[in-house]
């Protein structure tokens, strides 16, 4: 019985991971790709780890550690990446730019990477 629940969690986690990869392909813009990349993969990894924890109840401490790491660190790194990308002036999809007045573009506008 617990195996069934565990397998269900692992399956849903891998669905999330696959949707992250698909989203990376189909999203129109660099910033939206960052968003789907981090959110979906974090959720997927968390679900898979919870599923594994149901399978092996004595591994639970180490798995909780990994979940905590990934859960805390992934949004921070994506935030820093998006901030730097906006400063660099990466082309954005059409829509309102809420950050344009607060954050000035960088002066070294020579190479747009």
């Amino acid at each position: 019985m617990s195996e069934l629940i565990g397998s269900l969690f692992i399956f849903s986690g891998s669905v999330f991971l696959f949707s992250a990869g698909l989203g990376l392909l189909r999203m129109p813009d660099a910033f939206t790709r960052i968003q789907t990349g981090t959110k979906a993969t974090t959720m997927g990894a968390t679900l898979v780890m919870i599923g594994l924890a149901i399978y092996h109840p004595d591994w639970i401490f180490k798995l909780l550690l990994i979940i905590y790491f990934v859960y805390v660190s992934n949004p921070i790194s994506s935030h820093a990446l998006a901030r730097s990308g906006h400063r660099l002036g990466t082309p954005m999809a059409p829509g309102p730019d809420a950050l344009a007045e607060i954050d000035t573009r960088s002066d070294a506008a020579g190479d747009k990477l």
Binding site: G21, L22, A30, R33, T41, N74, T90
Partner: peptide, 28 residues
């Protein structure tokens, strides 16, 4: 499904137009 996700993100890694695309593909 996980493997298909890998294939998709590798494709984005290869194609990606700006630098940001490739970094986020690496992260994924």
């Amino acid at each position: 499904l996980v493997f298909l996700g890998i294939v998709a993100s590798v494709i984005r890694l290869v194609i990606g137009r700006t630098l940001l695309d490739r970094i986020v593909a690496m992260d994924v």
